[in-house]
Amino acid sequence: MSLTVVTPGPLSLLQDLGRHGHQHIGVSPGGPMDEHAFLWANRLLDNPNHAAQIEIAMGQFSCQFHTETTIALTGADMAAKLNQQPISPWQSFSVRAGDQLTLRGSQAGIRAYLAVKDGFVVDPVLNSCATVMRDSLGGPDTQGRKLAAQDCLHYSATPAQPLRRVPRQFIPQYGQDVTLEVIPGYQYAQFAPEQQQRFFSHTYTVTPQIDRMGYRLAGEAITCQTTSLISEGIALGAIQIPADGQPIVLMRDRQTIGGYPKIGCLTASSLSKLAQCQPGAQIRFVEKDLYQAEAERMIEQHFFHSYVGKKRAEAIINQALTT
Results as ranks from 00 to 15, higher is better:
Asp46Lys: 02
Ile54Leu: 09
Cys63Leu: 05
Ser92Phe: 03
Ala80Pro: 09
Ile71Met: 11
Ser28Gln: 06
Gly75Leu: 08
Phe65Asp: 14
Gly75Phe: 02
Leu82His: 05
Ile71Asp: 11
Met33Cys: 11
Ser28Pro: 11
Phe38Thr: 03
Leu45Ala: 00
Met33His: 00
Leu39Thr: 09
Leu73His: 08
Gly98Leu: 08
Glu68Val: 10
Gly31Arg: 06
Pro32His: 01
Glu35Pro: 01
His24Ser: 13
Asn49Gln: 15
Ala79Pro: 02
Ser28Cys: 07
His50Met: 11
Leu45Thr: 08
Phe38Gly: 04
Ile25Val: 15
Ser28Leu: 05
His66Gln: 15
Gln53Leu: 14
Trp90Phe: 04
Ala41Gln: 05
His66Pro: 14
Ala79His: 12
Ile87Pro: 11
Ala52Pro: 05
Asp99Phe: 13
Asp46Met: 01
Glu55Tyr: 04
Gln100Asp: 12
Glu68Tyr: 00
Leu73Pro: 15
Gln100Arg: 14
Asp46His: 07
Ala51Arg: 01
Asn83Arg: 01
Arg96Asn: 15
Ser62Leu: 10
Pro29Arg: 00
Ala97Val: 12
His50Lys: 13
Gly26Asn: 07
Pro48Ala: 15
Ser94Tyr: 11
Leu39Glu: 14
Ala52Arg: 01
Phe38Gln: 03
Phe93Asn: 06
Trp90Cys: 07
His24Asn: 12
Ala80Tyr: 06
Gln91Thr: 02
Leu82Ala: 03
Arg43Thr: 15
Pro32Gly: 11
Pro29Trp: 02
Gln100Ala: 12
Asp46Leu: 00
Thr70Cys: 11
Met78Leu: 10
Gln53Arg: 03
Ala72Pro: 15
Val95Leu: 07
Thr74Phe: 02
Ala80His: 01
Pro32Asp: 08
Ser88Tyr: 02
Arg43Val: 14
Asn83Asp: 14
Asp99Leu: 13
Thr74Trp: 06
Asn42Met: 02
Gly26Gln: 06
Cys63Gln: 06
Val27Ile: 10
Gln84Asp: 11
Glu55Thr: 10
Ile25Asp: 03
Glu35Ser: 01
Glu55Gln: 12
Ala72Glu: 12
Gly31Ile: 05
Ile87Val: 13
